[in-house]
Amino acid sequence: MTRIKICGLSTQEAVETVVNSGADYLGFVFAKSPRQVTAELVKKITTNVPAEMKKVGVFVSPSRDEVETAIQAAGLDLVQIHGEPLTEAVSVPIIRAVSIRKSQTLPEAGIEDYLLLDAPPTKYMGGNGEVFDWQAVNPTELPQDKLFVAGGLTPENVAAAIQYFNPLAVDVSSGVETNGKKDYKKITAFCQAVKEETHVSATNH
């Protein structure tokens, strides 16, 4: 079963919708972004989240201390690092985000536990709704059991992304928004599309 991460959450209503939709990861942006949140807010809006739902903090070129402080204050389960990677471990697993351009050479593995493929940044890192060129990477060369795929995913194209990459998880932010706000129907539709595709894949193999 491909796991689901819904990112850029900033309200309790959005968190509850994601929990009820059957997603696996809640994503919170600590970097500069229209969806930026504080550790205090994350703690507040995730008080009643079930233990199996993992909270992911998203950072851009942070210091280790900045990340560790947020982990403790917000109760994060994983961190996702864009830009300059961390060179020292923190107290939770690390997802390293890599922007994919044409004929991409993936960076050497570092201390991260997971790899996330995303579209190149525009004004902000991630959450731009842009699809990167999937053909620029060869799925068989990727650590599929540790792979997250992001970048312009929507309820309409996520099945194709799963077929191409066979990733551990798919990650969406702007693809489940309307006018910059999380759209509960789209969140539900996205999760449903992932579950349907995963079911089809399982029955065809």
Rank of each mutant, 00 (worst) to 15 (best):
I6Y: 13
C7W: 00
G8A: 04
T11F: 08
E13V: 07
V18H: 00
N20M: 06
S21R: 09
V29E: 09
A31Q: 06
R35F: 05
Q36P: 02
Q36R: 15
L41W: 09
N48T: 04
N48L: 07
N48W: 03
V49W: 01
E52W: 05
E52C: 06
E52L: 15
V58F: 05
F59C: 02
E66V: 10
E66R: 10
E66K: 10
V67Y: 08
T69M: 07
A73L: 13
D77E: 02
L78K: 07
P85C: 10
L86R: 01
T87N: 11
E88D: 02
S91R: 00
V92W: 11
I95M: 14
S99A: 15
R101W: 00
Q104Y: 08
P107M: 13
P107I: 14
P107Y: 13
L116C: 01
L117E: 10
P121T: 04
P121M: 05
G129D: 04
E130S: 03
V131Y: 02
F132H: 08
D133A: 13
A136R: 03
V137G: 09
V137F: 04
N138S: 12
T140G: 06
T140D: 15
T140F: 10
P143T: 11
Q144N: 14
K146Y: 03
F148E: 12
L153G: 07
P155K: 02
V158C: 03
A159E: 13
A160P: 01
F165M: 10
N166Q: 15
D171L: 12
G175Q: 06
K182V: 08
K182C: 01
D183T: 00
K186C: 04
K186R: 13
E196S: 11
S201I: 08
A202S: 14
N204L: 10
H205A: 14
